[in-house]
Amino acid sequence: MNQPASAYFLEDRHDPNETHTLSVLVQNEPGVLARVIGLFSGRGYNIESLTVSETESQKHLSRITIVTTGTPMVIEQIKHQLDRMIPVYRVVDMTLTGRSIERELAMVKVQGRGDSRVEALRLADAFRARVIDATTESFVFEITGNSSKISQFIDLMRPLGLVEVSRTGVAAIGRGPEGM
């Protein structure tokens, strides 16, 4: 107990962290994203990935996909804290449902000539990445998949002349006929 004197009860939490993907359906109105992000920063929660776009323009609904890490108690808190926000319709823990598909898109720019250029093209083919821009000394690949596949592809491109990467963050959807 070598913690400093304090008016608070300091306590180490030893529960292991888990990673969860949350789908949040919100009213698309000014400030709604700021509310969600402010909740995470204000309460010290992690955001690993965040993807937002309007999904039903007539009803002004947006879908926010958040990948977050925390102890099981913190994950439960995050869901409740999101759910009690006024413009939030629903929060679904895609990780808990165990029936979700997650995808991310990345654009990867690689520069090089000769053998490394050929190797980059060959690997892109193996990863089913498409060439969406090309010059005599560069490619831009478009790759879609789960986050680990994209990270793996980027790692492989690094020694072959990786210039830069732009990733969209994770989007998730449940399997089967039902909506969220």
Partner: peptide, 26 residues
């Protein structure tokens, strides 16, 4: 209220009535 949380009322079953779900299990 709780003091040390890991030594808080160690032998009890707890019922919690609250209007705010985020107060539960916090």
């Amino acid at each position: 209220i709780t003091g040390r949380t890991d030594a808080f009322s160690p032998g009890s079953k707890k019922i919690h009535i609250d209007i705010d779900p985020s107060s539960i299990n916090k």
